[in-house]
Design a binder for these strands. Structure first.
Lengths: 110, 110
DNA sequence: GGGTTTGTTCGAGATTCATCGAACATCTAA
DNA sequence: TTAGATGTTCGATGAATCTCGAACAAACCC
């Protein structure tokens, strides 16, 4: 089985995180994740191949931004929100503040 | 003389800014600028060629991060701090909060 | 004017990156 | 066991990026 590896956020550098966030697809993935709480790779509303989606998730994972766990044939992803807030204060808010695509979302208070 | 062009921050997207911040050299440049207030290209304490420094400044400029003005044969650069704080709240603090590390500096004694 | 300083621009080389289809692996359902 | 669903990995390809030296341009100083 595939044991996903996640870095300690203390070992993640700022350039690595910024690089991970420099792609519009990955920013959109992060927003979807924050919006839904947890999503499988296939649930990402993007018109790119699943190979590319897998690649983007790997980048996000290695940058310490998301946490992936296997469940059946699917992999469920979440944003490492609390840890990130400690390591890079304000980063998540920055990502979410850009282009608020969905307004009046149903109380998913975080 | 060369008329430097600077984008409106409203037109700058998050991926573009993140891309600009994904290079350790450019992060170091920003830190030096914030520390000194205003610096010429040649005053950047990095061991890279002036052609490369010029390139990095162009990237930072086009990402809306720094403002460049000519003065004699030199070009003085400042961080667009106030504007950035409005457009991308917390971004500058994020860059400064990262522990300063050695970027392309001389190696320590062996 | 001639020379110096400062920075830009122009190739060019090397590396990295995003993207895809195809093949593969793993788990679930029938 | 077989078939389907879900992701990963493997090449490959085209684009972007980082870096440099060399040539160039503009402003200063003598």
């Amino acid at each position: 089985m595939k044991p996903y590896t996640h870095p300690e956020l203390a070992d993640v550098t700022l350039p690595v995180v910024m690089q991970a966030l420099s792609d519009p697809c990955r920013i959109e993935i992060l927003r979807s994740l924050m919006d839904a709480g947890e999503l499988a790779c296939g649930d990402i509303p993007l018109t790119i191949s699943k190979a590319t989606v897998s690649h983007h998730f790997a980048v996000l994972r290695e940058a310490g931004l998301v946490l992936t766990r296997s469940e059946g044939t699917r992999c469920l992803n979440t944003v490492r929100e609390n840890e990130l807030e400690k390591r890079f204060p304000g980063l998540i808010a920055l990502v979410l503040s850009e282009k608020p695509k969905k307004v009046a979302k149903k109380a998913v208070s975080a």
